[in-house]
Design a protein around this nucleic acid. Sequence first.
DNA 1: TATGAATGAGGGTTCATTCAT
DNA 2: GATGAATGAACCCTCATTCAT
Lengths: 207, 207, 207, 207
Amino acid sequence: MTDIRRRTTKPAVERRREIVDAAIALFAERGYNETTVQDVAAAAGVATGSVYIHFESKDALLHAINVRFYEGLTERLSEIVDQLFVRVGEGETITHIDAVDLIIDAVADHVKENATLCIITAKYVAHSELIRAEIPFVDFVQRMAVQAAEAGIIYAPQPEMLAHLAHAAISGTMMTAIAYNRPADFEGLVRATKYIFYRTLAPEPTP
Amino acid sequence: MTDIRRRTTKPAVERRREIVDAAIALFAERGYNETTVQDVAAAAGVATGSVYIHFESKDALLHAINVRFYEGLTERLSEIVDQLFVRVGEGETITHIDAVDLIIDAVADHVKENATLCIITAKYVAHSELIRAEIPFVDFVQRMAVQAAEAGIIYAPQPEMLAHLAHAAISGTMMTAIAYNRPADFEGLVRATKYIFYRTLAPEPTP
Amino acid sequence: MTDIRRRTTKPAVERRREIVDAAIALFAERGYNETTVQDVAAAAGVATGSVYIHFESKDALLHAINVRFYEGLTERLSEIVDQLFVRVGEGETITHIDAVDLIIDAVADHVKENATLCIITAKYVAHSELIRAEIPFVDFVQRMAVQAAEAGIIYAPQPEMLAHLAHAAISGTMMTAIAYNRPADFEGLVRATKYIFYRTLAPEPTP
Amino acid sequence: MTDIRRRTTKPAVERRREIVDAAIALFAERGYNETTVQDVAAAAGVATGSVYIHFESKDALLHAINVRFYEGLTERLSEIVDQLFVRVGEGETITHIDAVDLIIDAVADHVKENATLCIITAKYVAHSELIRAEIPFVDFVQRMAVQAAEAGIIYAPQPEMLAHLAHAAISGTMMTAIAYNRPADFEGLVRATKYIFYRTLAPEPTP
DNA sequence: TATGAATGAGGGTTCATTCAT
DNA sequence: GATGAATGAACCCTCATTCAT
């Protein structure tokens, strides 16, 4: 019955991952302020102090979670976009409808598959440092938009600004939907989002 | 023996307003968690305990701030929409371009004029109770969208969902821009936002 | 059996004194580092946070204790010196022997009567801020020495420096003796101290 | 796969010295409580755990520093006293003035040459174990005093007690002066100290 | 001997809230 | 209603020490 913890040494990356995993579960379930570092440590199976070997502060844990969310999303979209351009390179014709469907479905899938990450990321933007995790992602969306515009897949006169809006409209709204269940009809939201981008990015500008 | 500080009684509404004003200034300047209730009380020129006569908790202060922001915005847009329908009633033809311009400029103005409120509202969505201040506003946007669609001013097959997206794309992005100065080019953002809605809400759907 | 503490309000000076009293007892008994602020609060019959209404930090408590010790000693010596000069003014002849006896006995008495204060003051000089409590006392000793030299009671060519040495030799040694019981023979120490000053301050300089 | 940092083995005495050297520098610079064992280890170029191979605890480091200071001083004074008695043995007449000058100058030099050690020793008397480092030194001063009195160099009716006072007046005051720069005029302090002992130890007691 | 990741108890301080006046 | 001293639970982080390697 005595649960004497043996001192175990593990590769730093593994430990970090275990701690972040524990933090994600707890922050999503009961909230950031309501979770103590001791809770996280206990859930990760390490001593309190060990958390501070791997993370500078409790806030750094939150940052790591956000980075994980956005890096995962960036990776996912990268692959899709790369494949898209391969198909374009092979002479296939890709319409803006195809592109929008692929991208938005991918975001929707990522959001659904990472619901707990979303809850945390959506709620704790407050911790101003956290918004920094978003920046590389917005940059990526901008590059993606510029590339697609140049390839003639989409029509977008100001791709950089549109990227900001896309970020807000796509991930922002979907993350909020998952985090707060508002609006409740997630699939309806996805369809509406696609609709906006079908029309906005249609090659021939409406006269 | 005589107290220097006189015990003064004021109408509750006035006291409430003074306290909220103080809270806005402090929360925006140094952050919610970094501001104590004692700070707010001091800045408002009342005793600590008096804050609790007018507000149930510190969180209630944050809620009041958000309500002020969204009620102000709702009022502003209401007037514009009302005028719009008056003009329609007078037989004038209002295009979706007119509507989008009016609405988005109004939002942009409100955000700029209420920058400190924005900073707070944008950052402290975290406190889950707060999102409730947003709900009546989203409802309002939905009704507005339905009305405009029925009047033929805009073309919107799923106005309810579009309202959510509009909220995210319009106020969400603009508020973030003001709060975090990202993107820095606010006017560019406004133009891009208008562009999206020109195309999305254009009467003839692209075939 | 339920010891529900009633909330009581007291004059600040009284509260401060009660808290310092509690701190003195605990710091002397178990040591500064070994005493928690909660211990002090409990012993003083107040809530933990209340300590911080009256003292900026735990260290400030230590400072207050030192100030109490040195202010008490200064007051005691002041009276003696004043009386001494009154007697001189009345034409009485005061020898350096008389002066040394009076002063050193007074210090010895103060040290014995305030043994617990001594233990703390002697041990926690480390907290560098504390030495500041000593400065006004050394200043006082200097003024006292200068005055006595001018009145011809003692012979002291460099009274300022002698004051430093007197401080070290008199109070420093006696305080250490009380605090660490080293040397064990306190009265012998007092006699030896007097001896040094009899010879050092004797009116006719040795040729 | 190969460790960059090589595991090096050195004679224990050398390692001990390196660690104490590092501790001296850090304790003097930023204080005992503000220096971590990890800091000391890093500065000494060893692993944290290695400190505990050579020292039982962090406190033991402080003790070692104090021992170094007092052993150095004892050694220095020993040599002087030995030479003094050699000269006496050779028939030379040594006055108390000569003895006082030699001793006090030696102490002053030691203090100046070991300023960092002084700062630490003066400040961290608190750690009660430390006072033990002083005991052998006081014993030594006592023996020295007795010997000098017996040889007729000085006149001291109660040499044991005087030794305590000498310790306080001489090293105590000088160490404080170096550690806290109070009094600022170190040379003046040395002169005053000599003066006291010239008079106190003068062979013919003043009548 | 040497290493340094891991341990975990410990405590000063803050501050939202209360309540006697 | 108004006051502000009093309350006390709560928590992040530190760091001396250990021990598996």
